[in-house]
Amino acid sequence: MSRTVLICDDAIFMRTMVGDILTQAGFQIVGEAETGVQAVEKYKHLRPDLVTMDIVMPDMGGIDAVREITKHDPAARILMCSAMGQQALVVEAIQAGAKDFVVKPFQPSRVLEAVNRVLAA
């Protein structure tokens, strides 16, 4: 049974990109979210094995969403997707409960390495 993923990013482009990388690696995309609020709702509903979360989103940003999801499920496996130059925010995201991070632009190999680390921990 393949692992399930919830992709959270307000840009369709990015969601498509991450989705393609993960689908080709055998993951099953079970949901997408455009805002932090949607991310939290869908997590509670879908209980995916993994979440990819963008930091900048409208209507509750990624970090707050991480916090909410982790509060709800301390074992949540969240991978943070960040742009270059957002070090302080990523630190905050890790402290809020995210397990690892990848930086845009995405390199498929790096994304998959990070995903495997998150799933293994």
């Binding site: 840009a11 482009f13 742009a83 845009k104 632009p105």
Partner: peptide, 18 residues
């Protein structure tokens, strides 16, 4: 905030496209 988010998204996409 809208400008910021839009610029941020454009940055990410452009990076991905090279």
């Amino acid at each position: 905030a809208a400008v910021f988010r839009a610029m941020h998204s454009l940055k990410g996409m452009a990076g991905a496209m090279g």
